[in-house]
Design a protein around this nucleic acid. Structure first.
Lengths: 247, 247
DNA sequence: CGCCACTTTGAAACAGTTCAACGTCAGTGG
DNA sequence: CCACTGACGTTGAACTGTTTCAAAGTGGCG
């Protein structure tokens, strides 16, 4: 794989981080050098399994992926979605053992970064290390917001909030238009993320569509009036920490 | 404040980390040196407010605290509990802005570590930095488990799982007995953590008590048969990452 | 064309909420 | 020492959001 290829593939990550802090050219090069491989996964495939002890971490370059957990009766819970520019399992660099599975919801391309290379970065690039730390902290902030939404909002608000979140994150990654973003998954996947039945997802979706708050065909989400949807969902983007600061 | 005082207060944190990786004497001293102050909060008091941009992070030394989020209608969601040895807002060292409040559920003592001192650590102690990173990743792992439990378990399993988690974490911090641990909060606080009404918490609690799975008087939780409770809750401690590894 | 995965619909069942009342207990002040 | 207070826990009953089950509709694809 050529360096300038990897560089291009890393742009979504760079822009996601650049929205929060400055990234020097040397830091970018260190990251590009750390990516040794590229892989592709078809929709529905497992990218990593709970319990794995991977020796690499994966940066999602395109597509939609999810972290999942399972309960005994076959129930499945999606704990977060990932889009281009997100690390899928950077936590495993430190935690070693994966406490969740990673699933490709659409076709996905990933860059592979060996933990040995990441270790080298933490030993020699303190600021870049803090930015990698930041990346995992953003996951945590999203988890907390999901907990709030799961626990204290009804189905309609919950769904509206999720669409707001994915819209804002897609905008930060540069893959959204002014009023739409790619969201390629099934209603049943969405149900697994919202902790509801797919039947109720279907009805909730119809309600939001009827209110003119959003539309979605399983591939692309359209938001007519973004401000109105955000008001409805009590959505405050602060938890995404989209502000330039010295980290 | 004397150095040997701070040292003693930091032991719960050291033992929590030592359960996951070795901590050198130099690293311990760097942390002790970073703690410049100690504070106490009475039960019910706010330790930090959502939206704050703190210049320090706080290490809980004793008591029970919680991170909380709010929705417009006055609803409150606790997103995680913290016990002795946990950082309450280490994420703010990198994220800068707090995306959640921190609440003292019982009387709490904390050590205060300025971000400037933490910055110094990340610049000079790569391994210790990774251990601080680890501490925030454990929060994330617990968040994911909560999401799974919120979304895919009923009230009884949910409550049983929470008691298992707090028992295991208390054991790791060295503040549990063989079958009990301190858990000083109200049923209403518990409801805010489980995303339920306090009425239903009360009834669920009675059901678990009637089954002989656990008892709790608002101060201390008692588990008769730990293995049985864990089986009931489908509790697998893997997500707590309680294994010694080189991180 | 027929299959299979996904979406949509209806109706019954249920887990959990809400509201309102009552019980309990520790702390406070007369 | 006792009455009062306020916070917390407990109970019952009506209500509602969501699930479950089962069936029918849709659409892409080999």
């Amino acid at each position: 794989m050529m360096a300038h290829d990897k560089r291009a593939l890393m742009e979504p990550f760079f822009s996601r981080i650049a929205a929060r802090d400055a990234l020097s050219e040397a830091e970018k090069q260190a990251l590009v050098a750390a990516a040794v491989d590229q892989r592709s996964y078809a929709a529905g495939n497992t990218i990593a399994r709970e319990g794995d002890v991977p020796l690499t971490s994966m940066l999602l370059v395109s597509g939609l992926a999810a972290r999942v957990g399972y309960v005994q009766n076959g129930g499945r819970q999606i704990t977060t979605f990932h889009i281009a520019g997100d690390f899928l399992d950077l936590n495993a660099f430190i935690l070693k053992r994966l406490d969740h599975g990673v699933l490709a919801l659409s076709a996905c391309d990933v860059l592979v970064l060996p933990h040995s290379a990441l270790l080298e970065i933490t030993e020699t690039h303190p600021h870049l290390s803090r930015l990698l730390w930041l990346s995992t902290l953003l996951d945590g902030a999203i988890h907390r917001q999901w907990l709030l939404v799961h626990g204290r909002m009804d189905a309609r608000e919950h769904m509206a909030h999720l669409f707001c979140e994915m819209f804002e994150r897609s905008r930060a990654a540069g893959i959204a238009t002014a009023s739409s973003f790619p969201f390629p998954l099934t209603q049943s996947d969405l149900a697994d993320a919202m902790g509801m039945s797919s039947v109720h997802v279907n009805r909730t979706l119809q309600a939001l569509r009827a209110e003119g708050l959003l539309s979605w065909d399983g591939m692309t989400a359209e938001i007519g009036d973004v401000a109105r949807l955000m008001r409805f969902a009590q959505f405050d983007p602060a938890f995404l920490h989209l502000d330039q600061r010295q980290r």
